[in-house]
Design a protein around this nucleic acid. Structure first.
Lengths: 346, 346
DNA sequence: TTTGGCACTCCTGGCTCTGGAGTGCTAAGA
DNA sequence: TCTTAGCACTCCAGAGCCAGGAGTGCCAAA
């Protein structure tokens, strides 16, 4: 049931209700609107309009004699059609840039730091998916002895170290031998997309080199864990920010949220579809597909390594969130992160 | 003001109050005690004893006409002198063992998984410090080219990969050259405690090999981050378990806890002194040294790699926690983890 | 179509009251 | 001297009640 497009006055009222409610967390009354905003109409007229907006599904009333708050549809319309996109202030931009410039050059830690930064700036819960290996190129495998008959296999991809696995051998193998074996593998597989390097190909090369089953297992395990995991790792930060929001004075709500933060699976489900689109995405309330999260919203923005989106940067907060600002913030941060990844020089 | 040792009956009453309060979370009344436990004395006598225990500082009364709950001192006496140590059931022991057997062989992930397991089993917040590098031996450094003029330096220690750092070069260096440089370093430093490998020694070797400043920086950075960080990383899991405890129906308490979980620093402060003792430790309420955590307690147990304690495994829960059980659980888990680390075979 | 006016709804917070749980004390008994 | 029955007393928790006020919906007039 597609709504007819809102006329200008209704649109303005809806936008103002969203704006006011985001700012105050109190249901918005008709008088509040006429007093604080220059509508040029009386509160009675506003009441009539609001009643219609409610009938059309944009607003809801917590109870009979209360003001109105936006519904999911109301927020959706606001985000899609009404709100003015914001851009980050130069100061914010600089702050993000500086913060990431000082960050670690190691991908994992860089993502962690970005997440904390985003949590701080957004005063919400931030979470960022780490790159999956799909787009990674195999660069190097190194077998290293760390004790007699015990070694470690390290796989390095174009993003850095991506897997390591301990192994044991039934007989001693010299460090030089391990180095030679590593070189043989590297010569054969270097710069291939890691997903293309299959078990069988590994087995074939192992056979050709006459390696033991021990070593084959170690190599296969390391390569396997460098290949695409089912779900990417997700860093999160800022959960405690949500406690400051009045909507979480109820402990039960918090429980859901805490559980979600600890269960990466749920976080991933939230952004999984956004992952494909490579565009900023906003999910509002029930759109999150989880009744427990019905009064939360999420803003999701991709970040890139070269031309490809390799992960998503998300902000989870109360449905009553400043969408325009958070979109700008997430986009700005994603951009800084992407640039930081692209030229490590900056 | 050292208390005189409690006589047997008082001790039993104190122990029973702790036991009952841990079980029910309700202040314990004199009648509850005589009804549920076979004391052989009347509730009036129990009341007299309780009044004395309160005067001596072992119990407190939330308000005049309520039962008693243990004070910090009460819990402390219980833990140190009264409680019967528990041992883990064979089933629990097996469950832990099996869970860790299937875990990753990579130290970082192994610790993560152990933490999650402990959080689940304890139904509390578990946190585990990751090994600091003090006791690690330098094993290997590897310089790997991942793009023209861009490379990654990886440091491997006796615990596995412990640091990596991206670097750039102002001129091209062949992969073979990098391998040769790596070998020279390895020959020189292998199996030395990593803390002993100082900047100056690295610089000397770099000079001897005639390397560029680019490379020296990369190597120094990687070595540096493999050396002792200020505080160890800490994995945590199970924060949402605390929400089920009645003492956290108040949101403000939760805020402190969430903040603590996200700020590793505070978590570390809690266990920092236990780190030295290498014995199981219990900290109760105000002993945590943080007014916000006054109604929490922590159980801390070391885990080992070979003969050395390399980290601590902790359970943070309401002060009203089953101390004996959690001590057994933490110890059992620490033992499984230590064994898993010692012989990767199991 | 807009608007002032007004009756109506319903939430919020404060207040009182009551039942009951639990204690402390006293005095009697062992 | 220790224990215990009895009893008065305290104080909390929850229910019920009330008043104030915010905000609406609707009507009738402009």
């Amino acid at each position: 049931m597609k709504q007819p497009r809102l006329d200008e006055r209704k649109a303005y009222i809806l936008a103002t209700v969203v704006y006011e409610y985001v700012a105050t967390a109190e249901p918005v009354a008709s008088q509040t609107l006429t007093h604080k905003y220059n509508l040029g109409i009386s509160s009675a007229t506003v009441r009539n309009e609001m009643a219609e907006l409610e009938a059309e599904g944009y607003l809801v009333q917590p109870h009979t004699s209360a003001g109105r708050i936006p519904s999911d549809t109301g927020y959706r319309t606001y985000v899609d059609e009404l709100m003015q996109p914001e851009t980050l202030s130069a100061a914010d931009r600089r702050r993000i840039h500086d913060d990431l410039r000082d960050a670690s050059r190691e991908l994992d830690e860089l993502v962690d730091q970005t997440t904390r930064l985003l949590g701080r700036l957004s005063k919400s819960l931030a979470f960022v998916t780490k790159p999956q290996s799909e787009t990674q190129l195999f660069k190097h495998i190194q077998l290293i002895s760390i004790a007699p008959r015990t070694g470690i296999a390290i796989v390095v991809t174009s993003f850095g170290v991506s897997a390591q696995s301990l192994f044991e051998l039934s007989s001693d193998v010299s460090a030089d031998d391990l180095t030679r074996l590593s070189s043989a593998f590297n010569a054969h597989f270097a710069n291939r997309p890691i997903d293309e390097v299959g078990e069988s190909e590994i087995a074939a090369l192992v056979a050709e080199l006459g390696l033991t089953e021990d070593l084959r297992g170690a190599i296969a395990t390391a390569m396997q864990s460098a290949r695409s995991d089912e779900i990417p790792e997700i860093a999160s930060a800022g959960a405690q920010n949500l406690l400051d929001q009045p909507e979480f004075s109820d402990v039960r709500k918090l429980r859901s949220i805490l559980r979600i933060v600890e269960e990466q699976r749920t976080l991933y489900d939230i952004v999984a579809d956004a992952m494909k689109s490579e565009n900023p995405r906003v999910k509002i309330g029930r759109e999150l597909g989880n009744e427990e999260l019905a009064d939360l919203s999420v803003v999701t923005v991709p970040y890139r390594f070269g031309p490809h989106a390799i992960g998503m940067l998300s902000i989870l907060g109360p449905r009553r969130m400043p969408y325009a600002r958070l979109l700008a913030l997430a986009s700005g941060t994603a951009e800084s992160l992407s640039r930081r990844l692209a030229d490590a020089d900056v």
